[in-house]
């Protein structure tokens, strides 16, 4: 009798230990389903997925960076800049939509490469290099837009639309990039190099990994993902705004960390990040539906982030 109870608790403990963030997410969902009757409807859950998409794609990009022991503070600004370049190329320069989209994505990659060059070859701390890019990219967004929102081309607006009422494109894009991230991290040379560099950069270098080149790859990927997130955000609004995605870098980092990644590098998974982004989206959705006072919402969000990471550290220590 006692042995089966032990077995059961051991199983539960193992499931929780493997997926601390997932347990937190389930807890949140259960609590909200009880408190807000409209929470657990198909439509609302789809809404949550769509609302998580932008931060999730940003966070997938940040997962590479954080796993390799770096940080990218520029993703929100780069997302806004990429979307703005895309919108400007079509609305002002008259280029065809797909070309404009590509130019926008390219903008993200270039911004990422600049970050990567500054970090890998310029020996700047990642925090400083990407902090500079946060400011530069936001400024360039204002320069390109002249301070006003621009209409996005149809192909970008498609990214924010619904294929059918129950098949929103942002959700599909999020799942696609989830798959890509999982694949890159676990199945590619670069992915394994990221864990190696994040675990011990010197050891990675001595074992023959070209750490500088791999860092370029890391930041370029982060820039590209930021650009995709920017397109998603602009697509949902059919407009690229100069003030879009302000502060999203912090949401992205929070999602990655809630998902169990370590800011000191070497640890982190795509599933964790997805769960982290969903936790944030579920929380915001639920706070709206419960009509929590605006003054308290930020308190609650901050507290949940701290709690999630605290739980994660605790379970690591007990293991």
């Amino acid at each position: 009798m006692s042995s089966t109870v032990d077995g059961r608790t051991a199983f539960a403990r193992r499931a929780l230990a493997d997926n601390g963030a997932l347990a937190g997410l389930l807890l949140l969902v259960v609590a909200l389903s009880v408190l807000a009757p409209s929470f657990l409807s198909t439509q609302n859950l789809l809404n949550v997925g769509v609302q998580a998409a932008v931060v999730a794609v940003l966070a997938f990009g940040s997962t590479y960076v954080i796993v390799s022991g770096g940080i990218d503070l520029s993703v929100g600004s780069v997302a806004a800049l990429s979307a703005m370049v895309g919108a400007w190329s079509s609305a002002e320069a008259g280029l065809p939509g797909p070309v404009a989209l590509l130019l926008g994505l390219l903008t993200g990659v270039v911004a990422g490469l600049v970050n990567g060059t500054l970090v890998a070859y310029g020996k700047l701390p990642a925090f400083i290099a990407t902090l500079a890019m946060l400011s530069v990219a936001r400024g360039l967004t204002l320069v390109v837009s002249q301070g006003s929102p621009l209409t996005t081309p149809d192909v970008v607006s498609f990214l924010g639309s619904n294929l059918t009422p129950f098949l929103p494109v942002p959700l599909l894009v999020m799942l696609l990039f989830f798959g890509i991230t999982g694949f890159v991290l676990s199945r590619t040379y670069s992915g394994r190099a990221m864990y190696a560099i994040g675990g011990n950069e010197e050891a990675a270098r001595l074992s023959g990994i070209d750490t500088k080149r791999q860092k370029l790859v890391v930041y370029a990927l982060s820039g590209l993902f930021a650009a995709v997130a920017g397109m998603l955000l602009a697509g949902r609004l059919s407009s690229a705004g100069p003030q879009a995605a302000v502060g999203y870098e912090l949401d992205a980092i929070a999602a990655v960390v809630i998902g169990g990644a370590s800011l000191s590098g070497g640890v982190g998974r795509a599933t964790g990040t997805l769960v982290g982004a969903l936790v944030l989206a579920v929380l915001r959705n639920g706070l709206n539906q419960l009509q929590v006072s605006p003054f308290w919402q930020q308190v609650v969000i901050g507290a949940v982030i701290a709690l999630a990471v605290l739980l994660d550290t605790l379970r690591r220590r007990t293991r």
Binding site: A36, N44, N288
Partner: peptide, 23 residues
């Protein structure tokens, strides 16, 4: 019936309105 903040921001206006429509 509901007052919620969307921080003067268009993207947040979309999300908050979507959520409020559910309730």
């Amino acid at each position: 019936v509901a007052s919620q903040p969307a921080d003067f921001n268009r993207a947040k206006g979309l999300d908050v309105m979507t959520n409020l429509l559910q309730a």
